[in-house]
């Protein structure tokens, strides 16, 4: 089962990527910290700590990073049985989307050499990046929940091979053009107040990317060019591609975030195309009522997909 091994490998890499930030945090007294539920911060110490000090709320100062003057009221602090994990309970729910700062004050100097230990608790950035990816891929799938790129979606989802080719081409062009757009936006348009030229510049960059991919592919890999070349023309006149830089500009994403968005959007488009194509190959064999043959039934199936994708609504992974 070749596919299975590939799948396993991908999973292994993904798990490792998720574990890395956890492994990388090791500094001073604190081994790890994170939000528990919405009224809790969990702090993990490297070694068991003193119950009398570390289970006393008076030793903790907690505030939202943007509101340093307003202390959050602690309800209680619990240490677990190993003495290594402290649970900080709060009276009011925390806004976990914002970074928080925890200061441990009046510590006995013997423990760390310092009397104050301050650290930041925030949702992991990698998680945030992944959430952009997953969001564009599934939760806010461009086709089924944002309703973009439908012309190409309906036009090229008749056969699975075409769908695959189209999806891959799209993803490549999307990523390249979105990153180029990011550079342009950050370093040329924003500093000079040329925001209003967004549309022209972005579509220009998309055409440029398409042209570049076309030329490079033709030279480097003619076989691949023959397979994908036909789709390249279709790419320019498509709103999915141009939507990515527009969203990027709207949300002021940084480079990595833009990359994740483009990758997710492209992957989501590929996924939608591929699923739709395999379903449509099946639909071709069906006895669909005559008036609904072809595009109308494709719309209705897409609507059913969108209904199913409602299941992802409200999903927050990280």
């Amino acid at each position: 089962m070749h596919r299975l091994t590939m799948l396993m490998r991908a999973l292994a890499v993904l798990t490792l990527a998720l574990l890395l930030p956890v492994l990388a945090q090791a500094d001073g007294l604190i081994a790890g910290k994170s939000f528990g539920n919405d009224r809790e911060i969990v702090v993990t110490f490297k070694a068991p700590v003193d119950q009398a000090v570390f289970a006393d709320p008076a030793h903790y100062l907690v505030y939202e990073e943007s509101d340093p003057d307003i202390r959050l009221e602690l309800a209680d602090v619990r240490l677990d049985s190993t003495g290594k994990i402290a649970f900080l309970g709060f009276k009011e729910p925390l806004n976990t989307t914002r970074p928080h700062v925890v200061s441990m004050i009046d510590l006995p100097a013997a423990v760390t050499g310092r009397t104050v230990e301050t650290f930041r608790v925030a949702k992991p950035y990698l998680g945030y990046l992944l959430s952009i990816l997953v969001s564009a891929l599934l939760i806010n799938n461009f086709v089924f929940t944002k309703y973009l790129g439908l012309c190409v979606f309906f036009g090229t989802s008749k056969r699975r091979d075409t769908a695959k080719g189209m999806g891959v081409t799209f993803t490549i062009v999307m990523v390249v053009s979105a990153l180029m757009s990011w550079f342009f936006y950050q370093f040329v348009m924003k500093p000079h107040g040329l925001d209003f030229l967004q549309i022209v510049v972005f579509i220009g960059l998309v055409s440029l990317t398409v042209q570049a991919v076309d030329t490079i592919l033709r030279k480097v890999n003619p076989v691949l060019f023959n397979a994908f070349g036909v789709y390249l023309v279709l790419v320019i006149a498509n709103c999915v591609i141009i939507a990515v830089p527009l969203i990027m500009a709207n949300n002021e994403y940084n480079f990595l975030e833009t990359f994740m968005l483009a990758l997710g959007a492209g992957g989501g488009f590929l996924l939608a195309l591929y699923m739709m194509a395999s379903v449509r190959e099946r639909m071709e064999l069906a006895r669909v009522p005559k008036s609904f043959k072809g595009v109308p039934i494709a719309f209705i199936v897409a609507g059913q997909f969108a209904l199913a994708f409602l299941g992802f609504s409200g999903l927050s992974l990280f």
Partner: peptide, 17 residues
Amino acid sequence: PLAGFFCVGLMMGFFNY
């Protein structure tokens, strides 16, 4: 928003009919 798919599909079918 997603009802648009159904509306367009059904209307197209209806017009074809």
